[in-house]
Amino acid sequence: MEMKELRGSRGVLAAVALLIIFIGVTVAFVQLNGNVARGISPEYNRLAHLQQPNSLSAWVYDWRGFDTLIETGVIYVGAVVSVLVIGRGLVRMKQVEGEEPVPQTSLDLKIGSVNAILKYFIFPLVILLAAYGILIVTGAATSGGGGFQCGVVVASAYLIGAVFFGKKNPLNFRRKFLIAIGSFGWALYALLGLPGYLVTGYWQYNVGTDLWSSIAGFPAQIPSILHTIFGDPYRLALVLKGGTFYSTAGIVPLINIGEAFNVIGAICLIFLVFIYGWSDTEEAKA
């Protein structure tokens, strides 16, 4: 790609235009300084402790949980599309002869040059990183962090393993396995909305926490069986200044696990396919 388009008078014109944009945006930011309105967020903060200590998790996975479902979808779609460009699922028209897609070969990754002593240090690091990822997701309701962080940490463990050990990675994920857990994760997240939907009509109503069924106008009562399944396993006692509160994060920890699976599947798959390429015949053999 040459930059000759932006030379000469065109370049001057573009520079002037960029200057105008710069001035406009700066004026806007200066005006915004000190005038930011708070909106609904104080209300969120006031309600957070009724559910779980990690109020960020309550925001992201409960109040705006459906929003996050679609964001998670962006990661899933990102994996599907990246892998598709490499070769998984390219399609041809039956009736039309065209150029055949060029198969992507694997990267020239020489792990033989890695110092053997380094491998002994890296091996426990990979295991510890993976364990740390699992720790993050299991404590998501009480501590900072959640499914996405877990996924990224585990994926980084996987990448380190791939760089130092090649195909003898301690986390030896296969392509089909990664696709399966990614799909499982997103499907789990999506379907965790079903119990609340069936009982109240609101998709992804948090049946375990059940904050709102006592408010006038709420369409249904939550049966106690759903409290038992989705609420009791995550019940917490919060000792705060105002007294001791009993709360449960409800379906949020489960959503976090779904999110973690999705992110692990998606990001590891992108790494794997970018390093080793995609070949349908190889996949059929495996």
Binding site: M1, E5, L6, A14, A17, I21, V27
Partner: peptide, 22 residues
Amino acid sequence: SDLNRVLFWVVIYFAIIIAVTM
């Protein structure tokens, strides 16, 4: 559909929009 050309026109348009509205 050269990227630089499209980028050039986008920048020009955007600058005009901002200049006219502000």
